[in-house]
Write a protein that binds this DNA or RNA. Structure first.
Length: 802
DNA sequence: AGCACGCCGACT
DNA sequence: GTCGGCGTGCTC
């Protein structure tokens, strides 16, 4: 029998990032298992913490001073051995704490909720009355002032107050009282017949129950209450005819009743792809496929059919979709094929709803999981296929710790289950496409559109001419004419404003002064609706100045282009047009995104104006015009992926036009009409773009030819951040071979965020076996030797280079 | 993270 | 002299 449990405690710090041994008390000896949460005392104050049991072991003589597990939180493991394993793999590969990884893998409600309570032991102690008033206990949190806190400490030291730590489990299982029918219809009928006449209500109840047994064995008390009072039910329970108990109800967000839809007939290319994937999943072969298919080539149908095949082999399927593409339309299609076996995980669900879906998956009730990035951790077992749609999407990479890429996690999990992974995209990331080239992934191509419709015609509009014509507007004549035509024909238009690295800010026309955030080194963004300036990094907000703070000139006004400004301009040009604006401001509220899309889909508006978020997934037959107002704001950014992003965005947005039987047209306004990313997007020529871009990456020694890792140092004082970065460089250099390329240290493009300065080093390398252990060591030691103010963050394969 | 221990400055 | 400032180190 095991007597010791290895526990990862809920303290995210380098020094505690290791298992701690705890004795398993006799009473819990048969209960405690790896993958469970437990409560343990930790540290000098012996505060109670939640921890995860990651291993059990036996020590003949336990070292003295071992604390014992106080209690278990779960009665059975909430993490399978596979997911437990995944947490340590994640911690190692992303340089994150294991506790952070464990919490990332699980739904948010499973995180411990801590409370520190002060109990008054000697009620007549001086100072106590002022703090406790008439109460015996007091929660200690940051509501208390510093003075109150010091008083509490004094009271504690004198023994008048005792601290207690409590851990609350936020994971509430919702229950409702229900009547359980534990007799057959015949028994109820018979029982009803034998009842004396005066028991009218009992008789009626039993007769009613007899009619229900065929349908269900559980009826919520609430639904019965309309016809039968609580006392009637109580009597029936006393006679052992029913039992009344709280049954678990899972909050389910089901779409409107949908009928199961049959498979579609496949084109030859689709059939070939399905056959290849089916063969791999049936053979339980670990193989990564790259499914490269133009918009409208029926990738989704390939996903659905291959998932169906996996289900027939009693295995499960996981489908990842970018958050932004997780539209009701998309989810509906999966429901229509798999019905109730589907679980959906996305950010629109409440914490409780997420927990319920998680439990449905864990219990094996859901065999197909559809979700965004974090759904890659779905507690599925026996996975037979993992699909990642729009695999090039940068939202698959988590920006904060653990800085994982869902693609890597998917492939890691697939290796465990010996199952294939399908990466799908019309514009694969260079990394994936290059791996397909090398034969690491198997390339499957869908070059034809299902409806045989031609891809929309793309017009490149040279905005430099617009300037020469002195049209000081964001709309070129050709795009404006195209919109006019659509309005006349009662067709819809989608206009996209590329906001990457771009926003409207306030600048003085006389002295050039730009209003900046006092905490961060970036200009504030103008928000017309709230008449204020906001910082997009820290949330700082201030009123729009009437005069320039620098030179007192009154000529201080906005500069640049925001959706709000474009909307005003559009409304001015087309007073009769109905416009829907979609950006972070109008879609912040829950369900707003869906509501706006629905309105547009119903034809309630003529023009949909939005940012990148409208480039994906939406599929409306009446849209025949797509306009990109500024195609190349991203091209100017100092990021080697700028061309790739521009190409992907333009290709994707172009796919929004002409989804129905009407022909679509696309206008791309740009100041770089000859740029290859724009020219090749016009021709819908991914393969040519891939070849061109690979060449450039090769010359610049960039991914996918090189691996990259970014090490950033931040500190409230700029010279300290810089100093740390240079020390980092000194430690890195001896461990690296001559082939590695080190960039920096350099201040970040936005050097200061939330009053912290950032310096970064980027290492480009092909094979550096000493690098990973060194980075792990750097994290260990920096926490000790530097001041507490210093943060070191390591990001493998960062997507954001600035 | 949070707590204790420990070593220095301005108060009863 | 001591109360309390925060710098350092440890938590099974």
């Amino acid at each position: 029998m095991f007597n010791i449990a290895e526990v990862i405690v809920d303290v995210p710090a380098m020094q505690t990032n290791k298992p701690f041994d705890y004795e398993i008390p006799m009473a819990l000896a048969t209960v405690v298992q790896p993958g469970m949460r437990v409560l343990v005392g930790f540290g000098k104050g012996d505060r109670t913490l939640q921890g995860f049991v990651i291993n059990l072991k036996t020590l003949a003589k336990a070292p003295t001073g071992l604390k014992a597990i106080k209690d278990v939180v779960d009665l059975e493991p909430i993490l399978s051995p596979e997911l437990l394993d995944l947490s340590s793999w994640l911690a190692q590969t992303t340089y994150a704490f294991q506790i952070t990884c464990l919490q990332t893998i699980l739904p948010g409600v499973m995180r411990g909720d801590y409370e520190k309570i002060a109990y008054l032991v000697t009620p007549d102690a001086p100072e106590a009355a002022a703090l406790f008033h008439d109460k015996k206990a007091l929660t200690v949190d940051n509501q208390l002032t510093n003075a109150q806190l010091t008083t509490l400490v004094r009271l504690k030291n004198s023994g008048a107050v005792r601290f207690e730590y409590q851990v609350h489990n936020k994971a509430r299982i919702k229950t409702r009282q229900a009547v359980i029918l534990n007799k057959t219809a015949a028994q109820y009928t018979q029982q009803a017949a034998t009842l004396p006449k005066k028991l009218q209500r009992q008789k009626a109840l039993l007769q009613y129950l007899a009619t229900q047994t065929a349908k269900t064995k559980v009826i919520f008390t609430k639904t019965l209450q309309a016809d039968f009072s609580a006392s009637v039910l109580k009597t029936a329970e006393k006679h052992d005819l029913i039992t009344i108990e709280a049954v678990e109800v899972k909050r389910r967000v089901l779409p409107a009743q949908t009928e199961i839809q049959a498979k579609q007939v496949l084109l030859p290319d689709q059939a070939k792809a399905v056959a290849a994937i089916d063969a791999a999943s049936t053979a339980e072969k670990q193989q990564v496929f790259l499914l490269e298919g133009v918009t409208g080539s029926g990738k989704t149908e390939v996903y659905l059919q291959t998932m169906a095949n996996v289900l027939t082999h009693q295995r499960t399927a996981l489908m990842l979709v970018p958050e932004i593409a997780l539209t009701p339309q998309m989810v509906q299609r999966v429901y229509q094929r798999f019905g109730d076996q589907v679980a959906v995980l996305h950010s629109g669900l409440s914490e409780g709803e997420k927990y319920d879906e998680w439990r449905r998956i864990k219990a094996g009730e859901a065999k197909v999981v559809v979700g965004a990035r974090s759904a890659v951790f779905a507690p599925l077992e026996n996975i037979g296929l993992i699909i990642m749609d729009e695999e090039h999407e940068s939202s698959y990479k988590q920006e904060d710790t653990p800085r994982y890429h869902a693609r890597d996690v998917a492939i890691h999990r697939a290796a465990y289950y010996h199952c294939p992974v399908v990466l799908g995209s019309a514009t694969p990331s260079l990394e994936s496409r290059a791996r397909a080239q090398k034969g690491v992934y198997q390339l499957l191509r869908l070059p034809k559109r299902v409806n045989q419709a031609p891809l929309p015609e793309v017009h490149i509009v040279d905005m430099r001419e617009n300037i020469q014509q002195n049209r000081n507007l964001d709309f070129s004549r050709s795009l404006a004419d195209a919109i006019t035509l659509r309005l006349a024909k009662k067709e819809q238009s989608v206009l996209m404003l590329n906001r990457r690295g771009f926003s409207s800010f306030v600048m003085c026309r006389d002295c050039g002064y730009v209003v900046k955030c006092p905490n961060c080194d970036i200009s504030l963004t103008l928000h017309v609706s709230s008449h204020s300036l906001k910082c997009h990094y820290c949330g700082h907000e201030e009123p729009i100045p009437k005069t320039c703070p620098n030179c007192q000139s009154r000529k201080i006004r906005y500069f640049g282009t925001g959706t709000e400004k474009i909307e005003q301009e559009l409304q001015h040009m087309y007073p009769e047009a109905k416009i829907i604006r979609m950006d972070v401001d109008t879609t912040r509220r829950k369900g707003a995104y869906e509501r706006l899309l629905k309105q547009f889909g119903q034809g309630d508006a003529d023009i949909l104006l939005g940012t990148q978020m409208i480039a994906k997934g939406l599929d409306f037959p009446n849209v025949t015009l797509v306009g990109v107002i500024n195609a190349d704001t991203a091209l100017g950014l100092p990021d080697f992926r700028a061309s790739e992003r521009t190409f992907q965005l333009l290709t994707q947005v172009a796919g929004r036009a002409g989804r129905g039987d009407k022909k679509g047209e696309v206008f791309v306004q740009t100041y770089n009409p000859d740029h290859y990313a724009i020219q090749l997007a016009k021709r819908h020529d991914y393969e040519h773009f891939f070849a061109t871009e690979m060449n450039i990456r090769h010359q610049g020694n960039y991914p996918p030819y090189y691996f990259t890792v970014q090490i950033s140092c931040s500190h409230p004082e700029e010279n300290q951040a810089a100093k740390a970065a240079y020390q980092m460089l000194k430690r890195l250099q001896p461990a690296l071979s001559a082939k590695a390329i080190v960039l920096g240290p350099t201040p970040r493009a936005i050097a200061r965020i939330k009053n912290r300065y950032y310096y970064q080093i980027i290492v480009k390398y092909k094979s550096e076996p000493k690098l990973a252990p060194l980075l792990a060591d750097i994290l260990q030691t920096t926490q000790r030797s530097f001041s507490k103010q210093l943060y070191i963050a390591i990001d493998r394969e960062p997507l954001q280079f600035m």
